[in-house]
C-alpha cells in the first residue's frame, strides 16, 4: 500500500446543483504511477481537475507531501509542485511551440532552469525542436500532445496529472509519451496520476489503478489485479 505522499481523501465535487464526485479517495506513493480509469462521464476528469485545484471541492481533504492543500486554486497547487496536463491539451494556438513551453515555467526555480529543461525536452521529442518556431495551433494532434506534456514538465512538477493524453491520437505516439513519462518517473521520482479511457494501456503503464463509476470509486488494486479482475475484463477490456 502507498505511503501518503499524495492523498485525495473523500472529496466531493458539485457542478452547480449536480454532484459528480462522491467521497472519491485515491493516493500515490512518491515515484508511483497510478491510473484512474472508467467510462465516459464517470468523473475521472473531474477527479484530476479537483486534484490540481482547477475545480473546487466541497468536503474532503487533499494532502501532498505532508501538507494539507485543500481549497487552493490552480496556482497554489502549482506552487506545491502539482501540475495538470489538461484534457484536450489546451495549448496557446497562436504562440510558437517554444513560447508554449516557456509559459509552462511558472515558479522561480522552473524559470531559472528553463533552458536546461527545454534541452532535455528536445532530446525526448526531437520533433519539437524542429517545430520550435511554428505556431502550436498548426501542429498535428500528436505533436500538440507532446507540447502539452512538455509544457507541464517545464514547471518541474513533483506530481504530474495527465488527463486523457491518448484522446484522438495514433497509438504509437501515445506509447512514445507513456514511455518517456515512465522513464522520467523512474529517473527523477516523478509521481504521475493518469486518467485514461484506454484501460489496457493505462494499466500497462501504472503500478496501481482505480476504477471510477458514476462518480464513485468501485474497484481498486494493483494494475495486475485489475487486469485480472472479472468485472474490469468484462466492462473495459472487452474480454
Amino acid at each position: 500500500m502507498a505511503d501518503n505522499y499524495f492523498q485525495v481523501d473523500k472529496i466531493n465535487v458539485k457542478y452547480g446543483d449536480i454532484q459528480v464526485l462522491w467521497d472519491v479517495s485515491f493516493e500515490a506513493a512518491k515515484g508511483e504511477i497510478i491510473a484512474l480509469v472508467g467510462s465516459n462521464g464517470a468523473g475521472k476528469s473531474t477527479s484530476v481537475k479537483a486534484a490540481s485545484g482547477l475545480v473546487k471541492t466541497c468536503g474532503g481533504r487533499i494532502v501532498f507531501d505532508g501538507q494539507e492543500i485543500t481549497g487552493g486554486n490552480c496556482r497554489s497547487f502549482i506552487d506545491h509542485g502539482i501540475i495538470l496536463c489538461p484534457e484536450g491539451r489546451q495549448l496557446f494556438p497562436q504562440m510558437t511551440v517554444l513560447e508554449n513551453l516557456e509559459m509552462g515555467a511558472c515558479s522561480k526555480e522552473a524559470e531559472a532552469k528553463k533552458k536546461d529543461t527545454i534541452e532535455k525536452i528536445y532530446t525526448w521529442f526531437p520533433k519539437l525542436k524542429e517545430r520550435a518556431k511554428q505556431m502550436a495551433g498548426t501542429l498535428s494532434g500528436g505533436e500538440q500532445q507532446m507540447v502539452a506534456f512538455s509544457r507541464g514538465m517545464m514547471g518541474l512538477p513533483k506530481l504530474l496529472l495527465m488527463d486523457e493524453p491518448s484522446l484522438g491520437l495514433a497509438p504509437t505516439i501515445v506509447d512514445d509519451i507513456f514511455r518517456i513519462a515512465k522513464r522520467v518517473s523512474q529517473e527523477s521520482g516523478l509521481t504521475i496520476v493518469l486518467v485514461e479511457q484506454d484501460v489496457r494501456k493505462a494499466l500497462k503503464l501504472a503500478n496501481r489503478g482505480y476504477v471510477l463509476e458514476n462518480g464513485v470509486i468501485n474497484i481498486q488494486g494493483t494494475a495486475q489485479e485489475l487486469l485480472n479482475n472479472e468485472e474490469v475484463k468484462k466492462a473495459y477490456l472487452g474480454i
Binding site: 482547477l54 490552480c74 496556482r75 489546451q90 496557446f92 497562436q94 509559459m103 514547471g155
Partner: peptide, 15 residues
C-alpha cells in the same frame, strides 16, 4: 496573450 488564446491553458500554467 496566453489567457486570451486559452483560459484553461493559462490556469494550468500558473497564470
Amino acid at each position: 496573450r496566453a489567457t486570451s488564446q486559452n483560459a484553461i491553458g493559462a490556469q494550468v500554467t500558473g497564470i
